[in-house]
Design a protein around this nucleic acid. Structure first.
Lengths: 201, 201
DNA sequence: AGCCACATGTAACAGGTTACATGATTGA
DNA sequence: TCAATCATGTAACCTGTTACATGTGGCT
């Protein structure tokens, strides 16, 4: 849904054509989430199918230009005036992974946590390096795109930090659990599954 | 990919059938991410297509039971021994939304932030309420499922807190930007787009 | 008899992603 | 001339999700 809404929002600023939309999207997000050109066109086709945009050929230079319809404008407004739903949060792969790692025997949970933390920390370094680099460049236009991509970068930093904090928290909790019920953590007698134990239900 | 890997990991503990897999998945994650039964079967079919599991009929009670293959075991190990990639982080809808909100004229960015913060804070309250409730229940089995879902819940809490912190940070940064370049924030002369200004490329 | 939970599926579709085909223009 | 970029698309595929059909067994 992100791409769809983003393209719609960009189109509300005025008529755009496909290639241009990709460039603007990546400019706003600083290339954080590269957007395949093909997806722009498929998404535009779906937006047109749903009556949210209209495609017009020729903008003077032969570009296939799209304009947003009234329904599309309503959609954008809905998007901006309603919060991103947290009622059913998107499945967090890392959380699922750890949740299963503590249950499946033969998995070294500590190692999973450590490797993830180091990966996330190196990502964090990349982010701060990018931040330093981007603060040097002079703004183009009114600078709102630079502001936008600065915020995106901050969001990545914040969530990476939260992930690291959570990993630390998991480690501590697992140590406590290991002290109380040593069977759960990866012991020598709990390696290699292959065999079912009990189905528990 | 989350569901696929999760089912595979569950199957490594021993043969399981579809309905059972859903129950275990939801038990581990405390119903945080409800899993449609149909998806279990489609996913199992795809896993079998890829040679990661094998379906055997009849486990004594007429259940269609699946077992993991060698290739499947390798896949699970790969999953647990490699970090969740942050090189291309999943598109964050909220970040994209704010990034566009600061650019598209006529959008009250402050309002977007406020509404999101209140939504996230109420989600946070739900989480803490769930935490209190779950700490009362006695553990079933070895308690690893309760541990797992406690960790999942913590992960939701951590990321929600990070989101709120980020929103505060955005507000502060926008205020600073408004002081320097008043044109960016929602002014009276910047309402209702309809017209293209410049394409900036 | 009616209802519910268990259990197995299928069909259709969504959005996202990649790979590919095609052509125009531009600059080395 | 050759390569790169701009530009528009299409086909195929992925996972995820919903809705639906179908049947069994147990409980009231």
């Amino acid at each position: 849904m992100s791409v769809r809404n983003a393209l719609l929002a960009l189109l509300e600023q005025g008529p755009r054509y496909g290639y241009q939309l990709r460039a603007e999207f990546e400019h706003h997000t600083g290339g954080t989430w590269p957007l395949n050109v093909g997806q722009v066109y498929t998404t535009l086709a779906r937006l047109e199918r749903d009556g949210l945009v209209e495609g017009r050929g020729e903008d003077g230079e032969g570009h296939v230009v799209y304009v947003v319809t009234d329904a599309g404008r309503r959609e954008v407004e809905d998007w901006f005036t309603s919060p991103v739903p947290r009622t059913q949060p998107p499945r967090d792969e890392l959380a699922i992974k750890l949740a299963l790692a503590v249950t499946v025997p033969g998995v070294d949970v500590g190692a999973v946590i450590q490797q993830q933390r180091s990966a996330t920390m190196s990502a964090l370094q990349d982010y701060t390096r990018l931040k330093r680099r981007s603060s040097d460049e002079p703004p183009t236009g009114d600078g709102s795109a630079e502001l936008a991509w600065g915020l995106v970068l901050d969001s990545l930093v914040f969530s990476a930090e939260a992930e690291i904090r959570w990993l630390d928290h998991c480690e501590a909790r697992l140590r406590r659990a290991a002290a109380e019920r040593p069977a759960v953590v990866g012991h020598a007698d709990a390696t290699l599954p292959t065999e079912a134990k009990e189905s528990r239900r």
